[in-house]
C-alpha cells in the first residue's frame, strides 16, 4: 500500500497545488476560523510529505481539517484539538515537535552548537594569547603607546589604500 499510497499522494499533491482550505469548509465565526487555521498549520498531513493540513490538498487532510473545525466549534481549545490528533497519529502529526526526552537533543542542539562554536572561538584566542605573551611582553604604558600609534597608522594606511585604488 505504501508505494501506491505514495504515488497516489504524490499525484494528489501535484494535482492541485493550490491552497487547500475550501470556502465551504470555513467556519462562520471569523475568530473560530482563525483558530482553526492556526491549528491546521501546526498539524502535519500524515499522508503528505512535510505539509501542514492547512496547505494540503490530500483528501485525508481535508477530512482532518473538517474534524479540527468541528471540535473547535464544539468548544474545544486549540491544545485539546492538537492533543486529539496526537493521540491518534503520535508525535508525527505535530509539525512543532514537543519537548520531551526523545527531542531534548533536537531542542537543545542549537544552543549546544552555539556554545561549542563560541567556546571554540574563546579557546582559539586563549591559545593565541599564550603565544602572544611569549613573543614580546609589553608594559601597560608601552601597550597604550603602541595602541595609539597603531590606530594612527591604520587611518593613514586606510587613506593610502584609497588613494592607491583611485588611481
Amino acid at each position: 500500500m505504501r508505494l501506491t499510497a505514495a504515488l497516489v499522494v504524490a499525484g494528489a499533491l501535484l494535482a492541485a497545488p493550490a491552497a487547500a482550505v475550501q470556502p465551504s469548509e470555513k467556519l462562520d465565526d471569523p475568530g473560530l476560523e482563525q483558530r482553526a487555521q492556526e491549528v491546521g498549520e501546526k498539524l502535519r498531513c500524515v499522508v503528505c510529505q512535510n505539509q501542514a493540513i492547512a496547505n494540503s490538498n490530500a483528501d485525508l487532510a481535508a477530512d482532518m481539517r473538517k474534524i479540527v473545525r468541528e471540535r473547535i466549534k464544539a468548544g474545544a481549545t486549540n491544545e485539546e484539538v492538537i492533543q486529539y490528533m496526537q493521540s491518534r497519529y503520535g508525535d508525527y502529526v505535530l509539525l512543532n515537535p514537543p519537548v520531551k526526552p526523545k527531542t531534548y537533543a533536537l531542542w537543545g542542539g542549537p544552543a549546544v552548537l552555539a556554545l561549542i562554536a563560541l567556546g571554540a572561538v574563546l579557546v582559539y584566542y586563549r591559545q593565541r594569547r599564550t603565544r602572544d605573551a611569549e613573543d614580546a611582553p609589553l608594559s601597560a604604558e608601552e601597550a597604550a603607546r603602541a595602541d595609539r600609534l597603531l590606530a594612527e597608522d591604520d587611518d593613514a594606511a586606510a587613506d593610502d589604500d584609497r588613494r592607491g585604488e583611485a588611481t
Binding site: K42, D91, Y92, V93, L95, N96, G109, P110
Partner: peptide, 15 residues
C-alpha cells in the same frame, strides 16, 4: 524511537 516531524516552527525559533 518512533516517528517525529520537524516542521517550520522549529526552524523559526532556533534558526
Amino acid at each position: 524511537m518512533g516517528k517525529v516531524s520537524v516542521g517550520p516552527p522549529y526552524y523559526n525559533y532556533t534558526f
